[in-house]
Simulated scan of single mutants.
Amino acid sequence: MKRSVQLSVTESSSDEPRWEATLRPKDVKRDASSGEHHAGGGTGKTMRDHLLDTLKNLRKGELKEFKSKLTDLELEEGYDHIPRGHLENTEPVEILDLLVKHYGNDYAVKVTTMVLEAINQRDLAERLRSAGSRGEGLSSGGPSGARGGGFRCFVDRYREQLIQRVTAVDCILDKLHGSVLSGEQYQWVRSGSTNPEKMRKLYELVPSWDTACKNQLYQELKATHRHLVDELERQ
């Protein structure tokens, strides 16, 4: 049985057709972009979405095992473990925030993958690794990291340049107050008479900071001096 569609166009003032055409199925090409299913990439998900989906795929016992392994996994030099107490009674969204806060975007993905493999969740690890290989970024959260070592290395590596060139020091101190700096430390750093002096005082405190604190400083530097950070990271 042949299938076809006949179309005709008429003028509004006449019933006589002005143009006729017969269409067969093979004459019509479907726009690939109009399909309901997408093959391959283009899922619209960020790496943050993939990380969260991965954590949500763990059952209660598996999530507990994940958190336990996360606190004793061997990390790259310059990174600290998330304190065990911070992970107690945490749900996937909270775990994701802790991962990004402590390790930054890229290393958070790597750490998650290593933990999954260590607890025999290799399918989830491979799925996450595949998403990462497609170059999908995290839409929010920690930094993507300076070239050659992440935000922690950035804060340490560019100490002199940041001391000399950061101008919005008071704004940064206001953001760090309460979460990174105590009230006494905040007042002490602000007592500097110039911006470089304030930055030197701030750097005197940096050696005692953990990864999360350096991450927060990096974030505030990006928020207030984006062009400077980009310039240094390109070096």
Score class of each variant (00 low, 15 high):
K69F: 11
V169K: 02
D80G: 06
D106S: 13
R159W: 02
G149K: 05
A118F: 04
V9F: 13
Y158I: 04
L58E: 06
Y203M: 06
G178S: 04
P25F: 08
D53W: 02
L162M: 12
A131F: 07
R122T: 15
K69W: 09
V109P: 05
S13L: 12
C153Q: 11
C213E: 14
E62N: 06
L232Q: 01
V155W: 04
A212E: 14
D170K: 06
V155N: 00
T194N: 07
R147Y: 08
S14E: 08
E74M: 06
V166E: 02
F66C: 13
V169H: 04
D27W: 01
A168N: 08
T71S: 15
K45I: 02
H225Q: 01
E231I: 00
H38R: 15
E91W: 04
G149D: 02
T10D: 02
H225A: 02
G183H: 11
G137D: 10
Q161K: 05
R3G: 00
L205R: 11
E94F: 06
K64T: 13
R134K: 14
L7K: 07
Q164A: 12
G149P: 01
W209R: 12
G85I: 09
G141Y: 06
A168R: 12
L70G: 09
A223D: 04
Y158S: 02
G183V: 08
V100H: 13
K64E: 14
L221M: 03
V166I: 05
V166W: 00
G42M: 03
E117L: 10
I82Q: 12
L23V: 14
G104N: 07
H37W: 11
K2S: 09
G132A: 15
T167C: 00
L63V: 04
C153K: 12
E65A: 15
A108N: 08
R3A: 12
Y79A: 10
M47W: 05
M1P: 03
W188M: 09
P196M: 05
L181D: 08
V169F: 04
S179G: 14
A32L: 12
K60I: 03
K110W: 02
R157A: 13
N215G: 15
D174T: 07
T90I: 03
C153L: 06
T71I: 11
C213F: 10
G35W: 10
V100E: 15
V115T: 07
L63N: 05
V166P: 00
A168Y: 05
A168V: 01
T71H: 11
R157C: 07
K222V: 14
P25M: 11
T224F: 06
R59W: 00
E65L: 14
C171A: 06
S68D: 15
R134D: 10
L232W: 01
R84P: 00
G178W: 05
K201W: 06
E160R: 06
L162Q: 02
F66G: 13
C171P: 00
C213Q: 15
R134N: 08
H81F: 10
D170L: 01
Q235G: 15
S34W: 08
Q216Y: 11
A212P: 00
G42S: 09
T22P: 03
Y103A: 07
K214V: 03
L96I: 04
A21N: 03
E65I: 03
L128V: 11
